[in-house]
Design a protein around this nucleic acid. Structure first.
Lengths: 163, 163
DNA sequence: TTGCTCCTCACGTCACGTGAGGTGGC
DNA sequence: TTGCTCCTCACGTCACGTGAGGTGGC
């Protein structure tokens, strides 16, 4: 990282709302609604009526929110709570960007750890539920096949064409 | 199974809507709404204003619907489609109950197989998505720990108390 | 008879969908 | 200049939540 990177951050690729929506798999309306709820980062600095522009970090954040919503079935209220914790991290992240002190940077990371760990726990819990549901379906399936096999035997125990 | 079972099916334990709701983890309103959409079996035979009663098969069906909704994120419209396939099975199930012919019974089961298999595929697909999301979180976590470890070394490379 | 749960409207809410009508950038 | 995507209201919809007011079974 050079001094120039620090003083004038590299020009990032900025995307418009339609491109972002398609990438993430939602509609533009959804993104605007999340912004309205304050789920996305600070939106001041955009003039009324001007186009919204998103950098890669914004897209990553949105993708994470949608993942938590879809895969874990969290409500937007729950996402807001989760995001408020994360906002501490985001707030600290700004501090990170401006911090020359490595100790400060470590503190920022330490604060973010439990946040990610909680998400991991939610994912694991959901995986267990899915495994249970899968087991139920497998039991059902094997019982059905059992009865079918018994019936096939009864109908024609020696027919090699029976499947 | 005795002849009496066939002619006068065993008295089943019947539950009221509140008990069922608590067992399955939804509200009574949800159950009434699903009935309104036709997601639950036939509801004729109940007089206007009379209490709803559910047997074990009804509860199992509801539990399956809620599982598909929550774990797979299906809309009620998708559930309706899926249930219409299943209704063929349900319709055939009535035929099953009244059928003395084992061949008929086998046909009913055969018709139900692809239905269960499709649900299994949906579960597997969802499991893959969750695994991807988990991997992303783990990558994030290990990167954070890496930086933290590097920092700890730099601060005090010989401190045995550093964790 | 007293609670309790149930019933049926019916309006409210959350998370967007869907136009209407207009402006801005390649 | 012509499309295209974007913008801001604003009403509609899906899947229920939440009382209001009343009836039925242990």
């Amino acid at each position: 990282m050079t001094a120039m990177d620090r003083t004038a951050p590299a020009e990032q690729r900025l995307q418009r709302i339609g491109e972002v929506a398609e990438q993430v798999g939602v509609t533009a309306r959804t993104i605007r609604y999340y912004e309205e709820l304050g789920l996305l980062g600070s939106t001041d600095g955009r003039l009324k009526g001007a186009h919204r522009l998103y950098n890669d970090a914004d897209v990553a954040r949105l993708r994470e929110l949608i993942g938590l919503r879809d895969l874990l079935g969290l409500s937007l209220e729950q996402l807001t709570e989760l995001a408020e914790e994360a906002d501490v991290a985001v707030c600290l992240r700004a501090q990170w960007e401006n911090s020359a002190d490595d100790a400060d940077r470590a503190d920022v990371l330490l604060a973010g750890l439990p946040h990610v760990q909680r998400q991991l726990e939610l994912v694991r819990s959901r995986q267990r539920s899915l495994a249970d549901f899968e087991a139920q379906l497998l039991t059902k399936l094997s019982r059905m096949r059992e009865v079918l096999a018994a019936h096939d035997e009864q109908r024609d125990p020696t027919d090699p064409a029976a499947s």
